[in-house]
């Protein structure tokens, strides 16, 4: 599974070394974010051990408030909400990771090529970006869901494939101004290869806006899934996702608070965790920010 953070931290590590980790560890908000992310991932991994069956239906228990048996209560079909949150974590986290991984990789590669080489390459890539941007991503998502099954993999891939344009434009913009800088000119004079200039010298310096957008992106993808669920075209039942659980919560708003509060907070906290962590990484990565 492509993981944007690994790729990026590796790149950064090659330039910045251990200072990165020290800086990151000193950032309390980033650590809080990391703790949330780790905790949620752990829950997702341990879902089968921790929870009851997320699909077991007992109609006689429908809409029971949280109790000793069902800590988070039960949903409209009498299923255990805690179990569904845990299994939903797997789906929602996976959606976030894979979608952003795809989007970031495509965005970085195309943005870097366009920004570094300029000219025709830039023109072609940017026109392609323009074309992609002209399609509302929702339209593309719908087209794909209509063509293929609305399976969770298709949803992740399509969220990724429709979300890279912003990254590409940001990377390109960074490259455009970076390549004119003195240090790049200097490396070029030494005779470094294009690939080396791009990956060792330009990219690490262009990453901060990408990181910000990628971190917002993980959360964004989780939210996109819930938005698709709102329209009924997200992850489909009986597979639980936080998004489709929240829809049940919405239908019972004001009556069964546990059905909207728990999945709502799961989304909120997880997205928050990713964003705090990402911010911290950004600060720690940036060689110019170390005071």
């Amino acid at each position: 599974m492509p993981d944007p953070y690994n790729t990026m931290t590796e790149m950064a590590a090659s330039g910045g070394g251990n200072q990165f980790w020290t800086a990151l560890r000193r950032n309390r908000m980033a650590m809080a974010g990391a703790a949330i992310v780790a905790f949620m991932s752990l829950l997702a991994l341990l879902a089968p051990v921790l929870g009851q069956s997320p699909e077991y239906i007992d109609v006689s228990l429908q809409l029971s408030a949280p109790n000793a048996q069902h800590w988070f209560g039960t949903d409209d079909l009498g299923r255990d909400v805690l179990a569904r949150i845990l299994y939903g974590a797997r789906i929602s986290l996976l959606v976030g990771f894979v979608a952003v991984g795809i989007a970031t990789l495509i965005g970085i590669v195309l943005g870097a090529l366009a920004g570094y080489y300029g000219g025709i390459v830039d023109g072609l890539i940017m026109r392609f970006v323009d074309i992609m941007l002209c399609f509302p991503s929702f339209f593309l998502i719908l087209a794909v869901i209509a063509f293929l099954e609305p399976s969770i993999w298709n949803i992740m891939v399509i969220i990724g494939l429709t979300g890279w344009m912003g990254v590409a434009r940001l990377v390109r913009a960074e490259f455009l101004s970076l390549r004119e800088r003195e240090f790049v000119q200097a490396v070029r004079v030494i005779g470094a290869s294009d690939a080396r200039i791009i990956f060792r010298h330009l990219l690490p310096n262009a990453l901060s806006p990408v990181l910000v957008s990628a971190t917002l992106g993980v959360g964004g993808a989780i939210l996109t899934e819930s938005a698709l669920s709102f329209l009924g075209i997200g992850v489909q039942p009986p597979t639980p996702s936080w998004g489709n659980m929240l829809i049940v919560g919405k239908q019972t708003l004001g009556e069964a608070w546990w059905l909207s509060v728990f999945p709502g907070f799961a989304i909120l906290i997880t997205v928050l965790g990713y964003n705090l962590l990402g911010e911290g990484i950004r600060d720690a990565l940036d060689p110019r920010l170390k005071d």
């Binding site: 719908l142 209509a146 609305p150 489909q236 009986p238």
Partner: peptide, 8 residues
């Protein structure tokens, strides 16, 4: 269970 958009 497969849930499919109405037109398709």
């Amino acid at each position: 269970l497969r849930v499919i958009e109405w037109a398709s």
